[in-house]
Every structure is written in structure tokens, then in C-alpha cells.
Design a protein around this nucleic acid. Structure first.
Length: 563
RNA sequence: UGGGGAUUAGUCUAGUGGUAGGACAGCAGACUCUGGAUCUGUGAGGAGAGGUUCGAAUCCUCUAUCCCCAGCCA
């Protein structure tokens, strides 16, 4: 259905599509495609392209195909195909039965190549790669025609057929378009259409030993699928004249190529080379490490897919090279998680708290709200007893100004439970570190409210020591110390800006028993701390959580200002 | 120094000849059984120089800066 209403996000591409639909171009039909090469994992930068292609199709009543641009078997693998499919589905997009492969069109491409040769618009070149490079000229100097450029049609036809038949070794010949060696656009200087590659292809196996180049293949792929708007990133702007040239030379359906800027974020690098380096150097554990911006990484980290789509909507699309603030992504993650995640109490760095006047052996249960943003999420019971754990940072023996939490002589609220007042501390004799706090509680404040109306400055979270589950929590920081990771000194690369302390593992965290059967992938808010996602490493015996993102923390800001 | 693009607050993005708007970030406050959430307020902007016009971010000219292109990668 046509959803081009006022709520639809507007950008220059949607403007073009809207105009085309209005003019009834292509009969008002909108067809897009997302065309990844299966040579690596998808990352958060890809989400913009996915969102644009699937989103625009949906908004204008069209369809979006998933098409693997698998024209280079030496780089492509089935593993990546599977991962890409999984990741796009996770994002919430679907292509129904329209899963296509460029390799399915190899025969048609070959026939089209014969057509171009017969038209005198393509020729077989026996030059070596080096010779072709030399003859291509430079940015400022025009190229020279190859000695094979004038080869007769019949000879070209024969040679090209024999290329396909496997008569020649890799690199010995190529098929080239005959365009213009003096063009100021390097792409038009007789671009290579086919190279010889005796390589096995994930989909066509050993059927082919010649493989089409991107520029030759892509327009044909789009044309075959009836793509109306072929949306790609900015670096293909220079290729558009060639895209158009091939389509016109062939006289087939002519999609419109439109380019947009890629999505980048501060503190982030998105390249296969970078991912590989981080893994090879042992800085991260794999492609799905929660610190990596791969989709499998952020999924494991706990980012909801909606947040990734929402950040695209918030940022929009334009032709300006830009780097978005990572804080905006985190905002979208928090926004989504705030709406949907269950609240729970968990103590990351436990400090024993004993309530001196609470009966030994007594256990009470308090009702806690699962999600204040969603009443349908209901409530749960949380056990309470004499010995609790609280967060180490929720107690200070000497409290600075504006510190509202527990300190000797001060009363605070234990969330959902009682008011407690600190009456003493126990210290380690050697280190002098506080190892236990002693409090008294006011039975009249049961449930968390004082009948006399007295107020406390803060509410802190807790878990009952006897009932708590032990858990491991993995805290993550940015992989880079600099907003712009490639801002490095002469001769250095991004590795010099890598944050070597991006992971902190906390092994003795205590969480409430409600989480006993939490499934891997499920997301929770640990109240007052942040959002956490159960890691696949988690077992019922040993729960493992990843910190997705911390909660906004005004106290941390105050602390910064005080320093 | 050839060709193709781009330039609006700290960041991203609208406005297409008629009061420069939004989001995030920042700052200040209200509220709060999460120092969360929510709400309110607030500072901050059209690369530069000319020109056209009653009026220019928008049209014209020049300049500057940044990005992309010399794969048998995509």
C-alpha cells in the first residue's frame, strides 16, 4: 500500500521516488534491492542501505529483493551468505521468495557479452594486467588504446568463447568494453568486463571459469529484476556513466542509479580489514564479539534491531560524507530498551550489608514492578532477609557534597523494601577497606514508604545474600580512545588508538533469583545501572551477562564536574 | 595539477526566493521508591568574498576546504 503520508521520513531519494511514482514512471512501480557481496559480515553501517532499500519499497508499495552480488568466487563463501540472511531477518526485513544471486544470471550476462562483441563494442585483450594498467593512463594523462583494441569481431567472438571453454589460463586474457581510452572518467577507459578465474563458486561450482566484473554485472542484474531505483553508496557516482552505457548498449530495461552517503559512527571503524586485525591480534574474540560493530556483535551485545532502524530514521540520508555521534545510537538503544526490557536488581560489585535489628532467619517477599513503562509486564516477588548485598559505590564512608547514597548515620531506602540507616562499618584490618556495613531498619517503612512522611535522598538496589544468584558480567567500552579512530600520527594506523581496556569482566556479581532461567539473548535493565543481555556463554549454573549500554548517569556527571 | 561529489550549531539533518526548524549531545530546572524514565527552559548555525533582488541558506560568479576515482575488488 502507498504510505507516502506526512509521517514518512523525507530525504532526497524518497523525493525522487515520490516524483517518479507521481509521473507514473515504470507504471508507478517501485522495485529496489539490497545487493551485498557475500565476502564478509554485515555491520551497523550496512543498516542504512538495508533500511533505505527495504524501507522505501515498503513505503511506496513496492518490493525489495535480497540479491547476493556473487561475481567473485575467490572472496565469497557460503558462511557469509548464511550470516547475511540471518542478520537481515534479525533486523526485521523480509524478501519473501525473492532471494536472488547474481550468479544465476551468468548465462544471460554471457549472451549479452556476445551481443556487445557482435556490435563491435567489446573486445578480447591479451595484454597482461600490468600492460593494461600502463595503457590506462593516469588521472591527468589520457590512456592509449591496447594493441588488441582493433581485433575483428569474429576473432573476438572466437576468443571469448574459448575463454569460457577454459582454453586459457587465469590472467591471460580479458574481455573489455570498447568505450574511450581518453575519457577523463577512468571507469570509461575500456573497462574490463570478464576475467578468467579457474575458481570454484559457492553456487555455480566449476561451471564457469570466466567471471563478470561489477560494472558489467550490476546493471544487468538490476535490469533482469526490474529494479526501478538502484540505490548505492557515493563511491559509485563515478560508475554511473558506465552503468548507463552498458544498459544503453544492450538496449534492456534501464534502472536509475542513485547514490547516497554511507553511515559512519564516532569511535567506530567498519571494515573487514579492521575486524580481521582485531581478531587476529586477540583484542576481540570473534566476529560476534559484543564490542565489534558487526550485526552479530551488536546483537550479542543486546542492541535491539529496532534501535538500529530508528537511528537510521533519526539521521536521515544525504550525500554529505558524515560521521554520526555514537551517542545518538546509544540514545536509540536506551529508548527501545526502556520501553521493553524487564527491570531487575543486580549488584555488580557486592558489599555485604547486615541489618542488625532484622530477625535472623526471617525472609520476606516484596512485590517489584517489572517495567514501569509497561503495566502489562506485571510484577514479581523479590526475597529479602537480614544479610544483603548492595553496590560498593552506593556506600561512602566520607561522602562528598551531593552524594545522596548510604553513608554513616544516613538513612536511605532499599528499593521496594525498607528504610535503613547505617550504624557502623566493619573494615579489613590490613587494608582498611570497608568489607561490611551495619544498618538498622525501620519496620514501619515496610514496602518503602514512611508513615510519618519523612523522605530519604536516595533509593538503592540490593539482593538478598542467601537468595542471590552468582553471575558474570562483562562490561564493555568503546574499542577506540579517539572519536576519530584514524586520527593518528604519521606512519601509525588505527591500532594506535585502540582502547586496550575495552573489556572488564566481573565474576562475582549477585542478581535476584528471578533471573534463574533467563534465556540467552534476553534483555534486562539492572535498575540504576544499565541494560544487560544474557550471553550465549550463559548456563543455568553460571549466568553471563553483557552490558549493552549503561543508564544515563547524572551522578557520574556531577563527579566529573567535581574533579 | 583530469573527472565526479560535498560544504547549514559540537554531531546529524530540514527548509528549494519571504521570521533558519528538528533530533542527539551540552547546560539549567521540575518531578520521581531507578541520580532511570518523563516534563520545562536554554546557549549554539548556512565555508569565504562578490553579485542579482524590496528580500538569498536557496539564483549567478569567483575562492577555499573535504571526500571519491588510475583492481583482471565490490
Amino acid at each position: 500500500m502507498n504510505e507516502t503520508n506526512s509521517t514518512a521520513p523525507g530525504d532526497f531519494i524518497r523525493d525522487i521516488v515520490r516524483q517518479d511514482v507521481l509521473k507514473n514512471k515504470n507504471g508507478g512501480r517501485v522495485q529496489t534491492r539490497f545487493p551485498p557481496e557475500p565476502n564478509g559480515y554485515l555491520h551497523i553501517g550496512h543498516v542504512r542501505a538495508i533500511w533505505i532499500n527495504f524501507g522505501i519499497a515498503a513505503e511506496f508499495g513496492g518490493k525489495c529483493n535480497l540479491r547476493f552480488d556473487d561475481t567473485n568466487p575467490v572472496k565469497e563463501e557460503q558462511e557469509y551468505i548464511d550470516a547475511i540472511i540471518r542478520d537481515i531477518h534479525w533486523l526485521g526485513y523480509d524478501w519473501e521468495d525473492r532471494l536472488y544471486y547474481a550468479s544465476s544470471y551468468f548465462e544471460q550476462m554471457y549472451q549479452h557479452a556476445l551481443q556487445l562483441i557482435e556490435a563491435g563494442k567489446a573486445y578480447v585483450d591479451d595484454s597482461t594486467a600490468e600492460q593494461i594498467r600502463e595503457y590506462r593512463g593516469t588521472l591527468t594523462d589520457p590512456g592509449k588504446p591496447s594493441p588488441y583494441r582493433g581485433r575483428p569481431v569474429a576473432e573476438n567472438l572466437d576468443l571469448f568463447k574459448r575463454m569460457r571453454a577454459g582454453e586459457f589460463p587465469d590472467g591471460s586474457r580479458v574481455l573489455r568494453a570498447k568505450i574511450n581510452m581518453a575519457s577523463p572518467n577512468m571507469n570509461m577507459r575500456d573497462p574490463v568486463m570478464y576475467r578468467i578465474l579457474h575458481a570454484s563458486h559457492p553456487h555455480t561450482g566449476d561451471k564457469w571459469c570466466i567471471y563478470p566484473m561489477y560494472d558489467w554485472a550490476h546493471g544487468i542484474e538490476d535490469s533482469i529484476e526490474g529494479v526501478t531505483h538502484s540505490l548505492c553508496s557515493l563511491e559509485f557516482e563515478d560508475h554511473r556513466p558506465l552503468y548507463n552505457w552498458f544498459l544503453e548498449a544492450l538496449g534492456i530495461f534501464h534502472p536509475q542509479q542513485i547514490e547516497f552517503a554511507r553511515l559512519n559512527f564516532t569511535y567506530t571503524v567498519m571494515s573487514k580489514r579492521f575486524f580481521k586485525r582485531m581478531i587476529d591480534d586477540g583484542i576481540v574474540r570473534g566476529f560476534d564479539d559484543p564490542r565489534l560493530p558487526t550485526l552479530s556483535g551488536v546483537r550479542r551485545r543486546g542492541y535491539p534491531p529496532e534501535a538500529l532502524v530508528n537511528v537510521c530514521k533519526a539521521l536521515g540520508v544525504a550525500k554529505t560524507n558524515s560521521t554520526a555521534d555514537l551517542a545518538l545510537l546509544e540514545h536509540c538503544v536506551r529508548e527501545e530498551l526502556n520501553k521493553n526490557s524487564l527491570r531487575v536488581m543486580g549488584v555488580l560489585r557486592p558489599l555485604r550489608l547486615v541489618i542488625d535489628n532484622y530477625p535472623e532467619g526471617q525472609v520476606e517477599e516484596f512485590e517489584a514492578i517489572n517495567n514501569p513503562e509497561d503495566p502489562t509486564a506485571g510484577t514479581r516477588k523479590v526475597p529479602f532477609s537480614r544479610v544483603l548485598y548492595i553496590e560498593q559505590e552506593d556506600f561512602m564512608e566520607e561522602a562528598p557534597p551531593k552524594y545522596f547514597r548510604l553513608t554513616p548515620g544516613r538513612e536511605v531506602r532499599l528499593r521496594y523494601a525498607y528504610f535503613v540507616k547505617c550504624v557502623g562499618v566493619k573494615k579489613d584490618e590490613k587494608s582498611g577497606k570497608v568489607i561490611e556495613i551495619h544498618c538498622t531498619y525501620d519496620p514501619a517503612t515496610r514496602g518503602g514508604d514512611a508513615p510519618d512522611g519523612r523522605k530519604v535522598k536516595s533509593t538503592i538496589h540490593w539482593v538478598s545474600a542467601a537468595h542471590a544468584l552468582e553471575a558474570e558480567v562483562r562490561l564493555y567500552e568503546n574499542l577506540f580512545t579517539k572519536e576519530d579512530p584514524v586520527d593518528v600520527e604519521e606512519g601509525a594506523d588505527f591500532m594506535s588508538n585502540v582502547n586496550r581496556n575495552s573489556l572488564e569482566v566481573l565474576t562475582s556479581c549477585r542478581i535476584e533469583p528471578f533471573l534463574k532461567n533467563a534465556a540467552p539473548g534476553s534483555r534486562y535493565q539492572f535498575e540504576r545501572i544499565g541494560y544487560f543481555c544474557v550471553d550465549p556463554d550463559s548456563t543455568p549454573e553460571k549466568l553471563v551477562f553483557n552490558r549493552t549500554v549503561s543508564l544515563r548517569d547524572d551522578w557520574a556527571k556531577i563527579q566529573k564536574q567535581q574533579k
